[in-house]
Design a protein around this nucleic acid. Structure first.
Lengths: 213, 213
DNA sequence: GTCTATATGTAGATAGAC
DNA sequence: GTCTATCTACATATAGAC
């Protein structure tokens, strides 16, 4: 068939492609899809512009690939965390949300720029209906798995209520990572924004709407 | 002085400027700052491109003016609502958050496109540090006033904790308005996303972190 | 204030040599 | 796969007639 893959790419090629994706995620995260220029990505990756087109196929494709690469890894980590939590038997709403959030926040706080950029990338993706397809592909499976677990704990709750709680929680988590400057400005001080506080907020809010539905 | 204002603009001029701002808020909301083209704004407003430059001075200035126009009105409404609430004497955390959120959600649900666009505009502004100055000017005074009221109810709470709650709450409110498609997708159904549910979530979460701090 | 014409820069994409 | 050169389109901004 004509759909057969070409022969495996060389090590050099893979390395170049990785460099391009590394640069792309920083630039896309910083400036958004429209604001990012392929030329800046090429410069940061220290490759000619042509190569960015060659590996990315198009700006839109490159953006999707960039998100997909991290999202795949993130989803895997989150599913493993959830599996471990289920084995531990400590299934509470707080524990499930903590599991979901800690998986990312830990990476962002310890693994440096790439994962910090990913948070902003996700914020761009999930605030623009343009990326609806990408969202469904990258985020929905994991979100649904966690949602199911929560609904098991609250069998009388409506799924729609839980879905709202999930979306509010994720947006709070993104604000926690991406809008620390807002919290500092309003709070008149600098703080290690604590993960516990975020999870406490979301768990209490979540429980309130699950019981009330 | 050379800072003296020129003579008052004609009625025609004010009308044109309003048309331009009306168009600008829709285009900026839809496509973000970078993605919006002054040409599209001009087309939508049915004026030549040159006029957009004349009234806006620059793309960045035009963006700020667009946000400022609605933000000023929003801030006034929110401050009046808060004053009325204080007179009523029914000062609870839930009532304060309901007051803050209902002020906007009502406009978005009853006043059509412009106020719905404003929600997305605010999301763009508060997710990009580039607009830090604009944020401080347009949103911080109102946010602080509500924050003070909440801290009066919880005198032992840290201001930093309340600031975090405020930021989480606002981001949840923006998600409520702007990411309804996400809630629908995860909830597998269409719903009148209810304001009560949002306020319940935020009030419960807020209280949990205020008591715990 | 209004509008036309144009200046200037830069974007994404492509063709083709190596 | 890699890289250079170039095509085409459209962006913001300005100068100047009305």
């Amino acid at each position: 068939m004509s759909t057969a893959r070409k022969r495996a790419p060389s090590a050099r090629s893979l390395e170049t492609k990785a460099k391009i994706l590394d640069a792309a995620e920083l630039v896309f995260a910083e400036r958004g899809f429209e604001g990012a220029a392929l030329r800046d990505i090429a410069t940061l990756a220290a490759v000619p512009v042509g190569l960015v087109h060659h590996h990315g196929r198009s700006k839109e494709e490159l953006f999707c690939q960039t998100v997909r690469r991290r999202a795949t890894e993130m989803a895997q980590i989150r599913m493993e965390s959830l599996a471990r939590l289920k084995e531990s038997g400590d299934l509470t709403l707080y524990a499930i949300l903590d599991c979901f959030m800690r998986a990312y926040i830990t990476l962002a706080e310890t693994e440096g720029a790439p994962w910090r950029a990913y948070g902003r990338l996700v914020a761009h993706v999930s605030s623009d209906p343009r990326w609806k397809g990408l969202t469904e592909e990258c985020f929905d499976p994991t979100a649904s798995a966690y949602l199911d677990e929560i609904l098991t704990l609250y069998p009388d709750a409506e799924r729609a209520a839980a879905a709202a709680g999930q979306v509010y929680s994720v947006s709070s988590m993104l604000a926690h990572r991406n809008s620390g400057w807002r919290i500092d400005a309003l709070g008149e001080g600098h703080q290690e924004t604590e993960l516990e506080r975020l999870v406490t907020f979301c768990a209490a809010g979540f429980e309130a709407i699950l019981n009330g539905s």
